[in-house]
Amino acid sequence: MHVIDTPEGFTPEALGEIFEAPVTGVRWEKVGSGQIGACYRLRLECADGAGGVPRRLVAKLAAEDEGARAFLWPVYRAEVAFYRDLAATVDVRTPRCHYGAISDDGTSFVLLLDDLHPAVQGDQLAGCAPERAAGAVANLAGLHGPRWCDAALLDLPWLNAVGDDDAAQLGEVFGPAVETFVERFDGRLSGADVRTLRESAAAIAAWVVGRPERFALVHGDYRLDNLLFADDGRVTAVDWQTLGIGHPLRDLAYFLGTSLTPDDRAARERDLVGVYHAELERYGVTGYDLDACFDDYRFAALQGPLITVLGCAYGTPTERGDRMFLAMAARSCAAIRALGTLDLV
């Protein structure tokens, strides 16, 4: 399939060939910061009778920087393969993918997705009300439940579970990343959060391979900035570049731990874990009671500092990004202490 590598490649002729219908005009504008890839909003003009052609699309392409592409090709492959191979096998709400293609070396790709306007992106910095979080939690169960402990996932060559060697390497990387994070935000982190981050770093290698008896597809970065909220309460998840196989409760603990204030989380997390568990049962997950689910939720809370610290380490610094990472770190560290997570590793 043809890979359109630049926005200038979205010509009426190219899109007409993709949709097998006449497209008479295309307008595009760049959206987002483009740290990992480039994102564009397309508006299509079509001839009469081209009813199957969407008038609005979001196009995702590889990063403009060639050096970044060479480093990021595994995440490009994961997102294209998710839409191609897995999206139809789960029930999580995602944008409809009209077209996807990737180069042989993985450094160039294109995805044409539904533009979900007027749905509104969540705000990681502002946080989320528990009532709104319930829809996101139910949607998350739609990712995990249909392929819960499905051994066929382990046969996908591009989707690997973390092994002991990977865990050891993560431990070697995460410890220094925590120290860099602590140094960068000196004076802006509480002493308790610094201790929790360092204790999490010491435990991360054992944690990431812990409790292997339960696994599923894991989004990896299921948080407010990667969710779209519609007026009717429907929640849609985007940005599938961090997809992997792992303990499914990591996504839930990460979402609740970084998206709710500590007070809201403490007051409502049992109810929200209950919403998630009820959805799992609806998808046919058996032999897994609510107490076991909540215990796994407690165990999984290290996903918060893991993704926060690494995201900060490898992302382009911005003023909003710094405030966001600090909020996520403080919220997730508070959750780890309140839930006694480190005692479970």
Rank of each mutant, 00 (worst) to 15 (best):
A338H: 13
A329V: 07
L57D: 10
T24H: 11
L156E: 06
I18K: 04
A205H: 08
L290Y: 05
G32P: 09
A38M: 14
A330K: 07
F174W: 13
V345M: 03
E172W: 05
A300W: 05
F19P: 06
C128R: 13
D164M: 02
Y276T: 08
V23M: 07
E183F: 00
C97D: 01
F109L: 06
R250K: 05
V209C: 14
P248W: 10
Y76L: 08
L224K: 01
H277G: 08
G321D: 04
L116D: 03
Q124E: 09
D232S: 07
I307S: 11
P157R: 05
A88V: 03
H117C: 05
V3L: 08
F82I: 12
A253N: 10
L125A: 12
F294R: 15
T196K: 04
I102Q: 12
A230T: 03
P74E: 02
I18R: 07
F82L: 02
L227S: 03
A38V: 10
N160Q: 10
A119K: 09
P54Y: 08
L260T: 11
E319R: 03
A68L: 15
D104E: 13
A313E: 11
A59D: 11
L344H: 09
L227I: 04
D91G: 15
L15W: 02
L156S: 04
M328Y: 09
A129Q: 08
A62C: 14
A133T: 08
D232N: 15
V208M: 14
A334Y: 07
D296F: 04
A230F: 05
P74A: 03
G25E: 10
A330F: 06
D165S: 14
A329C: 15
D123C: 10
V285R: 01
L306P: 04
V26N: 09
V173Q: 15
G67L: 03
A87D: 06
G311S: 13
F215H: 08
A253C: 11
G49N: 11
A168K: 13
V208W: 12
L256P: 14
D65T: 00
V173C: 10
N226F: 02
R211G: 02
G311Q: 06
A330P: 04
R69Q: 10
P305V: 05
D164E: 13
F82K: 11
L306Y: 10
L342S: 08
R43Y: 09
E213A: 14
T107F: 04
V53W: 03
Y288P: 04
V3P: 07
S190G: 13
H247S: 02
P176V: 13
L61M: 15
G135E: 06
R323L: 13
G34E: 05
F10S: 02
L153I: 03
Q303I: 00
M1W: 06
E213Q: 15
R184K: 03
G257C: 05
L339H: 11
F215M: 02
R298K: 12
V75T: 15
P146L: 00
G163L: 00
R43G: 05
D186G: 10
L272S: 13
R323N: 07
V110W: 00
N226I: 04
T258I: 06
T107K: 11
R268Y: 12
T89M: 09
D164L: 06
P157A: 11
E20I: 00
L227R: 00
R250H: 06
R132G: 15
L57E: 09
